[in-house]
Each structure stands twice: as structure tokens, then as C-alpha cells.
Design a protein around this nucleic acid. Sequence first.
DNA 1: CCTGTTGGTCAACGCTTGTTGGCCAACGTA
DNA 2: TACGTTGGCCAACAAGCGTTGACCAACAGG
Lengths: 197, 197
Amino acid sequence: MTERAPTPAEPEAPPRRSDATRAGILAAARERFAADGYERATIRAIAKDAEIDPSMVMRYYGSKEGLFAAATSADLRMPDFTRVPREEVGQVLVGHFLDLWEDAGVLTALLRVGITNQAGAERMRKIFAEQLLPVAREVCPDPDAAPARAALCAAQLLGLALTRYVLRFPPSAALTREEITAWLAPTLQRYLTAERP
Amino acid sequence: MTERAPTPAEPEAPPRRSDATRAGILAAARERFAADGYERATIRAIAKDAEIDPSMVMRYYGSKEGLFAAATSADLRMPDFTRVPREEVGQVLVGHFLDLWEDAGVLTALLRVGITNQAGAERMRKIFAEQLLPVAREVCPDPDAAPARAALCAAQLLGLALTRYVLRFPPSAALTREEITAWLAPTLQRYLTAERP
DNA sequence: CCTGTTGGTCAACGCTTGTTGGCCAACGTA
DNA sequence: TACGTTGGCCAACAAGCGTTGACCAACAGG
């Protein structure tokens, strides 16, 4: 759409004087998208957070959709599950996701937006297919059922994130990391490796 | 807020000539809220769906928030779990939720809106506390842990709804009712009745 | 036949949104 | 010093939003 491509695929751009501003906008955008969802996160509010003029956002990212795309370029950085003992897969998976969610607002933003925005949902489907599905395909006993098994894991993991970080159910938010691992790891382990339900 | 109270608590209102219109608006609102979320579901669009003037929506429901409140007066109609054998609790719970989600768009609307809208999240917390938590308190072995156990069940059930009805992950949407029950019932059973994780 | 109530339309209001184009200051060469 | 490029602000645009009030048609009761 725009001449100035904001895609991260760009090989090596020369460092520009405005890189700090760009990063500031991106950080503010992530926070706002995470807190308010796509529609309520206005470009004006993001610009004010970044202490910049709204028109700058447009110049650097083309449009609101472009900004969103740049702000939610999530990489789950899945660990190498070929090196994980099969009986520990569930536990490692829970631990990895807890790290991801706690660490930054990117995933919260993605989840919130995926629910109101068509493009956001598409992005989540893609992340699921490219990153969680291969794991299931690797560790489950019947490759044909891998998509279903991965979907069940996604449901459990996203459901926890939903109640804990978005809806903020008090008992869900109060769970410790150890409790979550203890309860969820066996569930995921079963979804991924059990011979039959 | 409004003189004309739209609360369902009103004991017995005399049947009005406009009841059909009111119901039409409510049905259209539910569909739009479920499909688009709170912000994108405009009063104008809802009115057009109901083949009515936007101002009628305002007159009957006071404001957009009032309309939303009326459109999402969800009652989970929980079955009586004192009559369910303890070892079948998980299965009955899954079945009941599948019935609820399939049957109407109310819950989809509620979920979508609970994620963007503050009042929506509050409503979901209330529904959780009033309807799912008592079940846990009744069947779990340690009443102190009932909130945590209920939260885990909510995470699993809402996560399934999220991936299946909102994000529409293909493998999740493709699961049959029987498969879902077979996989999820043991999980919920464990969350509710296991002595320890 | 008049008259008050109810169901409904129409046109506009004030506001916020994403987006655009013009203008200005600072910088990096030549 | 001159000048093109870059970073940035300002003011405005058109469109869409929720919301309002004036106005009309049909009906009911006296």
C-alpha cells in the first residue's frame, strides 16, 4: 500500500536518526493495543503516549493496520522439542508459554486484537499453524491427529491467558507459576501424547 | 440511567404493541455484537438489520451500553450437580457448555465483548463467580481450593470456545462433539475432583 | 369528533476518528 | 555559505459515530 515498506523482511536498513522515535511509537502501540484492543486504541492516543504527533505515526507506518502489523510481529521462539524427553513435553510447553506471556504485552495485544479484528484472527491462526502445530506433529503418536491435538493445547493455553491476563478472573490471576505448571502440564501431556482420549 | 427500565428483573410488564420490534432489535444486536465486538457493532448497523430507525434503539434501550446489557443477559442455567454422580461431573459440564455455545450467539457475543469492553469483562467475572464457582465448591474435595479449580475449568472451557467459535482455528472447529467430550471431560474431572494436581 | 398516547421516521447536532498536505527547523554534505 | 534531505508539528479534511428533538400516522377512549 505504502511506498515505505514497514515489513520486518527488509534485509538491512541503514540506521536512521529517527529510530528511537520509531521504537517509541511501536512500544506505545503495543501497550495500547494490549490494553484497549484494536478499535479503542486510537492513533492519537498512541501518538500522545509516544510524545509525538499523530501524523508521524502515519508517515512511519502508513496506516493503522500497518502499525498494528508492525506491533504484533510475534515470534513464539519455540524451544527445540526434539531434544525434550517425551514425558516432559507438557511441562516444557507450559513453562515456555508462561515466559512468553509474562515477558511482554505482545501476546496480550495479539489475543485482544485477534478477537475483534479479522486480520488479527488470521495472524493468530498463522502463528498457531506455523509454531504450535509442528510441535504436536513431532511428539504425538498419530500424525493424522496432530492438528486436533495442537488445537486442544491451544485452547487450554489461550484459555488460561484469557482468564488470567485479559478477563482477569481473580482466582486465575492469583495462581502461582508452580500451580499453573502442576495443573496444566499433565493436561497438555495427555493432549499431545496419549494414545486415545 | 433511563426512565424506562430494560432490566429483566421487572416483574410483569403489560404486553406492548412494540414487543416484536423490541425483540427484533435485541436479536439483531446479539448477532452484531457476536460477529463484530462492541465497538464495531454500530447502532446504525443493528437498526438496519432490524429494519428500524436508529433512534428507536435509543428510545427503547437508552444507550448503546443499555442495549448491550439487555442483549447479553446470560443465564448459564447450570444443571443441579448435587444429582450428578461425582465421577461424571466433567462429562456433564462439557456437555452443558457445548449445548450453550451451539444454541445461540449470546455467549459468543459475551466473550467477544468481554475482551474489549470493561463492563463486558465485569459481567463475565460475575457469571463465573455466580454460576461456575458454586459447582466447584460443591464437588471438589477441598473447598478452599474451589476458586482455583473453577478458574482452571473456566480457562479450559473458554479456551475451547475461543479457538472454536471466535478465532475459528480450523482443527478446533472441526472437532466433533464426541471428540471434545472425550478429551475435555477427563481434564475438567481432574481439575474439579483430583486430590492434588 | 376531538384528543392524548403510542410507534415510528427524518434530519440534524457535536464529537472523534483515520488520514492528508503544507510548513518549519535541524542537519549533512559540497 | 548554500542547499537538499530528514524529522517533526500544525491545521484541516471527510467520514462515521452515538445521540437528540421535532414531526407525523395510527389508534383508543370520552
